[in-house]
């Protein structure tokens, strides 16, 4: 009774095989990450200290630190998100809460989706034409930030819409049925219950904005800019700036005789800042989610 037939045995074997195969594939995802991070750290170790972060590049960028590039990246990321987050969030609120299903809104939707798929080098060219030349902003932090903003905008719209859509429809109906306008509904119920998702979506764009090279190279990043060691307000909006991603490219490929550990340490700083920000986003989301319950 209940004994295993040959057919059952073969099924059990293929089941076990499938499970191991799938596990191996997902484990294979983790391995490269660990290897990359480990390799970076080992190679970067000789240069990794606080002075590396705060110091300026010296001796034709072959020695010293990365402060100007670090500050430049912070400027670019912060300004670009300060532009794209409000615009993106408001647009997403319109699309999710107000827009009816008509051709105009379908067009807008289509544009947003397609904009998200545009390669960054194309954004770079667009930024060059639109901001640097047409808008006469020149090669500047402002042009570069606007270009990055255009690039992150569609993703922010998409993630915000997702956060808004996760608020149950019944809450909105409850409001409408006591006579609340859409805006009152949005302010009283929709935004308070989606704000954590919205913020997370915005913060996750930090890593994209910080990592892109092409868009800023075309519009406002330079190889070198003289800045005081540790100076926070190092740039004006209408000047060009250095940036980590661009600096990494420069010292790895353009400058001979760079101390070996410096490019790796630069990469570690870039990676660590991005991971730190992402971790903050995840913590924020977890905190806010634990407070809401329905």
């Amino acid at each position: 009774m209940f004994a295993e037939t040959p057919f059952v045995r073969s099924k059990r074997r293929s089941e076990a095989f499938a499970k191991w195969l799938f596990f191996a594939m997902s484990a294979a995802m983790v391995l490269p990450l660990l290897l990359i991070v480990g390799y970076l750290f080992v190679k970067a170790a000789p240069s990794l200290n606080i002075n590396f972060l705060l110091d300026v590049p010296r001796r034709g960028m072959t020695q010293g630190g990365i402060w100007p590039a670090f500050v430049g990246t912070v400027y670019l990321v912060f300004i670009s998100l300060a532009i794209s987050a409000p615009v993106g969030i408001l647009a997403a609120v319109y699309l999710n809460e107000y827009a009816r299903d008509n051709w105009l809104n379908r067009m807008i939707n289509l544009a947003v989706i397609n904009l998200a798929g545009v390669p960054s080098i194309v954004h770079a060219l667009f930024g060059l034409g639109a901001f640097v030349y047409a808008a006469r902003l020149g090669y500047s932090i402002l042009s570069a930030s606007l270009t990055l903003a255009i690039m992150t905008l569609p993703v922010i719209i998409a993630s915000t819409r997702e956060a808004l859509a996760s608020v149950p429809m019944s809450f909105r109906e409850a409001c409408w049925n006591v006579g609340a306008t859409r805006w009152q509904t949005i302010r009283a119920v929709v935004l308070p219950n989606s704000i954590s998702g919205i913020l997370t979506g915005v913060i996750l764009q930090v890593s994209r904005a910080a990592g892109e090279t092409a868009p800023i190279m075309f519009t406002g990043a330079v190889f070198f800019k003289a800045v005081q060691k540790g100076e926070v307000f190092a740039y004006h909006l209408n000047e060009q700036c250095m940036a980590l991603s661009m600096h990494l490219y420069t010292i790895s490929t353009q400058v001979p005789g760079v101390k070996e550990s410096i490019p790796f340490a630069t990469a570690v700083v870039l990676l660590a800042s991005v991971l730190l920000v992402n971790a903050a986003a995840i913590t924020l989301r977890a905190l806010m989610r634990s407070r809401k319950k329905w």
Binding site: S170, A174, C175, V178, G179, A188, V189, N193
Partner: peptide, 26 residues
């Protein structure tokens, strides 16, 4: 109109705020 014609739904749908705020919401 909606102020004077109220609606109650199949599934109770209180807002995710306090009891007090629910009552004074209107």
């Amino acid at each position: 109109l909606r102020k004077s014609v109220g609606m109650v739904f199949q599934r109770p749908n209180p807002l995710p705020i306090s009891v007090y705020e629910n009552v004074v919401f209107g």
